[in-house]
C-alpha cells in the first residue's frame, strides 16, 4: 500500500498522462460492453436495452441449429488458419530480407512500395482486385500465359481463399514488417561482431542472432493473431464474394452483416453470434498464451 502511494507520488505526471487513454478504453470499449446483454434478450428499440424481455439462450440455439452454421464456422476457421499459415510469416520474411539489403535507397524504395497498399482503402483495393481477377484482368492474363484457362477467378469457389489470403499479404505484409524492422534494429550490434569473430557467415548470423533476437516480438504478434481467429472482418469478404463462392467465402461476420444490417435488423441474434465468436477468441488467446509461457517463457500477460 505504501509502495503504491509512493509510486503515485513519484510518477504522478505519468499516471496523469495515462488518464486519457484509460478514459478512452472505459468510455468506448468497456462501457458499451453492457450492451452485449441484448444477446440474451429480444431487443426492441422502443423499449431499450434494459426494457426488452429476457429470452435466455434462444438466439444461441437458433444460430447453432441454423442451416449454415457449420459452413460459416468451417469457412471462418479455415480462412483464418490459412491467413495465419501464409499471412503471418510474410512480414517476418520481408523484414528479414529488407534487413539484409545494404543499399539504403533501394531498401527504402522497397519498403515504401511494399507498405503503400496498406493505405489504399479497402473498397478501392477490392475494386482493383475484382478488375485484376476478371476474365481479361492482369492476374488472369498472367495465369493464361502459363497455360491456365482464363476465367473470372472470383467466380470460382475453389479460388476464393487463395485470392483472399494472397491479396491480404499484398495489402499488409509491408505494413506488418515495420514492427519487425523495429525489433531488428533493437538487436545489439556487438552480438553480430562477436559472431563474426567466431567465424559466423551470413546464414549463421541470421539463424543464431537475428531470429532469436526478434523471437519475443514474433511470439507476441502470433498470440495477438490467434486471438483474432474468429473475428475476420466482413468488409473484404462482402466486397469479393458472390453467390457462387458463398460455399467457401461466407464467414461468421459476413453472415452477421447480412442478418443484422442487410435483411431484418436482428440485433439480438447478431449480438449472440458476435458474443459467441468473442468467447472462442478469448479462449484461444488464453490457451495460446499459456502454451507460450510454458514453452517460450514469453507471454502477453
Amino acid at each position: 500500500m505504501d509502495r503504491a502511494v509512493a509510486g503515485f507520488r513519484r510518477h504522478g505526471a505519468l499516471y496523469l498522462m495515462a488518464v486519457p487513454v484509460a478514459l478512452y478504453y472505459i468510455v468506448f470499449h468497456y462501457g458499451p460492453m453492457y450492451g452485449a446483454v441484448i444477446a440474451f434478450k429480444d431487443f426492441d428499440i422502443s423499449k431499450g436495452i434494459w426494457g426488452s424481455t429476457w429470452v435466455g439462450f434462444k438466439h444461441f440455439t437458433d444460430f447453432f441449429s441454423s442451416f449454415y452454421f457449420w459452413r460459416i464456422l468451417r469457412n471462418t476457421v479455415l480462412l483464418s488458419l490459412y491467413q495465419l499459415l501464409w499471412g503471418f510469416p510474410a512480414p517476418i520474411l520481408l523484414a528479414l530480407l529488407l534487413n539484409e539489403i545494404r543499399h539504403v535507397r533501394f531498401r527504402r524504395f522497397i519498403q515504401t512500395a511494399s507498405y503503400l497498399p496498406h493505405f489504399i482503402s479497402m473498397v478501392v483495393a477490392c475494386g482493383m482486385l475484382v478488375d485484376f481477377c476478371s476474365r481479361d484482368g492482369v492476374i488472369t492474363g498472367l495465369l493464361a500465359a502459363v497455360g491456365i484457362p482464363p476465367v473470372n477467378l472470383l467466380t470460382q469457389p475453389g479460388n476464393f481463399r487463395t485470392v483472399y489470403v494472397a491479396s491480404g499479404i499484398w495489402q499488409e505484409a509491408g505494413w506488418g514488417a515495420i514492427i519487425y524492422l523495429a525489433a531488428l534494429s533493437g538487436i545489439d550490434v556487438q552480438l553480430y561482431e562477436a559472431a563474426v569473430i567466431d567465424g559466423a557467415g551470413r546464414m549463421r548470423k541470421l539463424l543464431s542472432v537475428t531470429i532469436p533476437g526478434i523471437m519475443p516480438t514474433v511470439v507476441l504478434m502470433f498470440l495477438l493473431h490467434v486471438g483474432r481467429i474468429m473475428s475476420l472482418g466482413f468488409e473484404k469478404i462482402i466486397l469479393l464474394y458472390n453467390p457462387n463462392t458463398y460455399e467457401t467465402a461466407d464467414i461468421i461476420s459476413s453472415f452477421v452483416y447480412r442478418k443484422g444490417l442487410g435483411e431484418g435488423f436482428q440485433f439480438s441474434f447478431t449480438a449472440a453470434v458476435g458474443l459467441f465468436s468473442s468467447v472462442i477468441n478469448l479462449t484461444l488467446v488464453v490457451a495460446a498464451n499459456a502454451v507460450s509461457r510454458r514453452v517460450n517463457q514469453t507471454s502477453l500477460w
Binding site: 441454423s66 458472390n242 442487410g262 435483411e263 431484418g264 435488423f265 436482428q266
Partner: peptide
C-alpha cells in the same frame, strides 16, 4: 420471417448460379 427468408434466399441464389 426474418429467420427464414434470408437463409432461403441466399440458398436460392447459390443454387440458381
Amino acid at each position: 420471417l426474418s429467420t427464414i427468408v434470408p437463409a432461403l434466399s441466399s440458398y436460392k441464389d447459390e443454387m440458381f448460379v
